[in-house]
Each structure stands twice: as C-alpha cells, then as structure tokens.
C-alpha cells in the first residue's frame, strides 16, 4: 500500500513501525505453524487417545500465548502488569469453574448409570 508519509517524521518512527509490523508477522507465522501442527496430529493420525488430547491441549495453550504476546502485546515487563494479572486471575477463575463443572457433571453421570 503506498502512503504519503509526513515530511517531519522522525527516523525512529520508521524503525518503530517496522518492529511492530514484524511482531504481527512473527505472530501470524507461529500461529499458522501451531494450527497446522494441531490439525496434522488429527489428519495424519500422528497420535491417538490421551496422548493426542494432551498434545492438542498443549498446542492450543501455546497458540493462545502467542496470540496474547504478538497480537495483544501482553508481556512480562514490570511497568504494566495489571493486564497480565487480570488474565492470570481470569484463568484461575476459568480453571476453577471449568474443572469444577466437568468434575461434578461427570460424577453425576457415573451415579446415573443403570
């Protein structure tokens, strides 16, 4: 895309823009690789049973971290941890709710067996 660039733009801004573009490109490449890997596990029958589920779960986790890092720009720097803290707290709540729900419903299911 051709753009008119303001004449007074500092060279630092070009560098900065290049760096931020690169971040999105790295994110896209990693996400594509992880997605392809996850689908390959199933399509090519690389693994089966529990091992497949574990690997798929791990790939999804890594891809979520890639999206958070490269698309949402969440990182570990000390000056701005509030958003990271909020994610970690939300993840804690999610784990409690999801594992609790699955546990209780599975238990109920077993008890309902004839």
């Amino acid at each position: 895309m051709s753009n008119r660039v303001p004449a007074d733009r500092l060279p630092a801004a070009y560098e900065e823009e290049r760096r931020e573009r690169l971040s999105y490109v790295i994110g896209l490449v990693l996400a594509l690789a992880l997605t392809a890997g996850a689908f390959a596990v199933v399509w090519l029958d690389l693994l089966s049973g529990g091992a497949a589920l574990a690997v798929l779960g791990l790939l999804a986790f890594i891809q979520a971290v890639v999206h958070l890092r490269f698309f949402l720009h969440i990182d570990l720097e000390r000056s701005h941890r509030d958003d990271l803290m909020l994610i970690l707290f939300t993840v804690l709540i999610l784990l409690i709710m999801v594992s609790g729900t699955v546990w209780i419903l599975y238990d109920q299911h077993i008890r309902m067996m004839p």
Binding site: E20, H73, D75, H80, D83
Partner: peptide, 8 residues
C-alpha cells in the same frame, strides 16, 4: 511509559 494498556 511506552506501554500503558494491551494492544497497540
């Protein structure tokens, strides 16, 4: 600070 919030 360079980064105050999530995203760009």
């Amino acid at each position: 600070s360079e980064r105050l919030h999530p995203g760009i």
